[in-house]
Write a protein that binds this DNA or RNA. Structure first.
Lengths: 306, 306
DNA sequence: GACCGGCATACCGCCAGGGTATACCGGGAT
DNA sequence: ATCCCGGTATACCCTGGCGGTATGCCGGTC
C-alpha cells in the first residue's frame, strides 16, 4: 500500500528518460536499485508498469505517471504554501478595531500590509473596547487595535499611534469659527463622552486628563453609534476625540485643535502571546514600520498649522 | 524537500487524535519516534506545525493537514486506478471491426464488455480487412475483429463466431419468394463479390468453397460501401454473406438460407501478442464467454426454421 | 555467432526510522 | 509550595530497507 513520492519520482523519471539507465543517472543513483524498486512496486501493485526491452510504459504505467505527476506537483506546492503560511506570507488575521482607529489608522495599516504581504487576508471588525477585550480572550480575534485595553497576563501590546485630543463642537457652537481653542474657552459647555459601560478605562483616562488641567466639566453620555454621532447640534456640547479622527470632515461638527496639549490614550495593538498566527506577527511588523515612517509615535503638536 | 506520504499521515493523525500519544497508538508505533519525525519535519520546513501542551495545529499546520488529506486521498485512488487499469477493469481498447461483424456481433460483444467491465472504454472503427491488418501492425488497433486476417508471427487469434453463408437476392429475383434455396437453384445468376484488393483472402475463400461444390458462377465485383449495397436490384445477381449479416432486414434484398451448408470464414479476434493492453485482454475473455453462451462456435444449420 | 547495450540478479554496507528508557514540563489537587 | 500525573522531548540502541558494486542474462545487430 505505501507507494511513496520517491517511487513516483522514479517511475516518472524512467518514463521521461525512456530507460532505466538514463533515469538512474538523472536520479543520482545506480541502475540496479532502481530496477529493484520498480520490480517490487510492480509486485505490490500486482500490475506491470513498464514493458522492458525496449522500455515503454504499459497502459497501467501511463495511468500511474499521469497521477504521479499531479501528486508530485501538488506536494511541492503544498510545502511552499505551508512555508509561506508559517512565515506570515500567507494566511489570515482576524483583527478587531476600535472605532476611533477604523477610519484612518486601520486602513493605512491594512494598505501597508497588503503591499508587504499580498498573501495575507485580514478579517477586520469594528467593535467597542469591551468586546475587543472579550473577543481577544475568547479567541475570536487574533489581534486587536484599541485604546486602554486592560493589561492582563499573557497579553502583549505594541503602541501604534500617539496623538493629542482635539475638540469637536457643533456648527452652532460659539467657538465654531475659531482656528484653535483652549480648554478654558470651552468652560461652560457640556462634555459628551462615551458611556462607562462601553469603554470604562478610556472614559476615566479622559476624565483624569481633564482633572489634571484643573478644570471641571459637566458630562453627558452620548449614544455611541460611532464617534461622529455626538449630539452636538444644539451648539452647547463638545467632545474630545483623537486628532486623527477629528481630522475627518463631518456634516454637523467642527474640529477645534486644543492649545492645551492633551494626549489621547495610546492606540495599541494587543494580542495573546500564545495565540498569534504568523500572519498576525507580520501585521505587527508592518504596523511598527508604518508607525515609524509616519511619525505616529511622537506626539504631534495640537496647534493650527503655522 | 522530501516530505513523503508517511509524514503526511503522521501529521494528519496527530491532528485528528489531538495528541502525539494517541496518534502513535493509531499508527502502531511508539510516541518518541513520532515526536522526532515531527520535530525534524518542522525543522526542514522551517515552520512549526503544532503548538505543544496542549497539542494544537498552528496555522501552518492547518494548511499542511488540509493539503495532506487531499494528497493522501489522491494517492489511494491513484493506486486503485492503476490496479484497475492493469487488470483490464479500466482503460481503453482500440478495436477494428470488419463490416460483416459491425452490425450484430460487435455490438453484442460491446454490450457484454460494458456489463462486465464498466470502466473500459472502446474506440471501435469499422474497416475492411486490409486496413485491419495494416492498422494492427502499425499499432493503430489494439484488437481486430475480422475474417481471414493473414496469419503472421506475433499475432494471436481467437475464433469468435462460426456461421454458414446465406444468399441474398434482389426482390426482383426469381427465387425471391422461396423459404430456402440450394446453390444449384442459383445457377445462372451472377455472384456479386467483394473486390480482390479489399479482402483478397476472404474472396478466395468464398471462391474455393464454391469450387468444392462443383458449380461455377460468373463473378461481378460489387461496390463495397458496406455489405448491403450489392447491386441486386436488377434481379439477376446474388451475394453470399454470413448468416448473421443476412438476418438483417434490408430494403432491396431478400435473404435465402442455403440448403448446402457452406461455412463462412471464421470471425476471429486478432491481436499482437506483445501489444495487448489489459483492457484488450478483458475483451478477449468477454468475447470467449459470449461466444460460448450464444453457441456461436458450433456451425448453425442453414435451413429454414422447422 | 560474437559483440554490445541495457535490464535483472546477488550480495553487501549503511543509515534512516522505529523501539526502549527516561527526563522534562505544565497543570491541577492537596 | 509540593506532589502527582498526563503528555511530550531527549538519549541511545537496533533493525530493515535502500542504495552501491559486481556480474549475469537477454535481445538486437553486424
Amino acid at each position: 500500500m505505501p507507494v511513496d513520492l520517491r517511487l513516483m519520482r522514479y517511475v516518472v523519471t524512467i518514463a521521461e528518460e525512456g530507460g532505466f539507465q538514463r533515469a538512474a543517472e538523472r536520479l543520482r543513483m545506480a541502475q540496479p536499485p532502481l530496477s529493484r524498486q520498480i520490480r517490487d512496486l510492480e509486485r505490490r501493485l500486482g500490475v506491470p508498469l513498464f514493458h522492458r526491452r525496449p522500455t515503454r510504459l504499459t497502459e497501467a504505467g501511463e495511468a500511474f505517471v499521469a497521477s504521479a505527476r499531479r501528486l508530485l506537483a501538488d506536494a511541492d506546492s503544498m510545502i511552499e504554501l505551508v512555508r509561506a503560511t508559517g512565515q506570515g506570507q500567507s494566511g489570515t488575521v482576524r483583527l478587531g478595531t476600535v472605532m476611533s482607529a477604523a477610519h484612518e489608522t486601520a486602513p493605512e495599516l491594512l494598505a501597508a500590509l497588503r503591499a508587504a504581504y499580498p498573501g495575507v487576508t485580514v478579517q477586520a471588525r469594528e467593535a467597542w473596547s469591551g468586546e475587543l477585550d472579550a473577543g481577544l480572550r475568547a479567541g475570536r480575534f487574533d489581534l486587536v487595535l484599541g485604546r486602554m485595553i486592560p493589561r492582563r497576563p499573557g497579553l502583549t501590546r505594541q503602541t501604534v499611534r500617539r496623538e493629542p485630543l482635539v475638540a469637536v463642537v457643533g456648527t452652532a457652537h460659539p467657538l465654531a469659527g475659531r482656528p484653535v481653542a483652549a480648554l478654558s474657552d470651552l468652560y461652560g459647555s457640556r462634555l459628551r463622552l462615551v458611556p462607562g459601560d462601553v469603554a470604562p478605562d478610556y472614559r476615566s483616562a479622559i476624565l483624569a486628563a481633564l482633572a489634571r488641567t484643573g478644570l471641571e466639566f459637566e458630562v453627558d453620555d452620548c449614544e455611541v453609534l460611532g464617534w461622529r454621532h455626538l449630539g452636538l447640534a444644539d451648539g452647547k456640547g463638545f467632545a474630545l476625540v483623537p486628532s486623527s479622527l477629528g481630522a475627518l470632515p463631518t456634516a454637523d461638527g467642527v474640529t477645534l485643535p486644543l492649545a492645551d496639549h492633551l494626549p489621547a490614550p495610546d492606540l495599541e495593538l494587543v494580542w495573546r502571546r500564545d495565540a498569534l498566527p504568523p500572519a498576525g506577527a507580520a501585521f505587527t511588523r508592518v504596523a511598527e514600520a508604518t508607525a515609524r515612517e509616519r511619525g505616529w509615535l511622537e506626539a504631534a503638536p495640537t496647534g493650527p498649522p503655522a
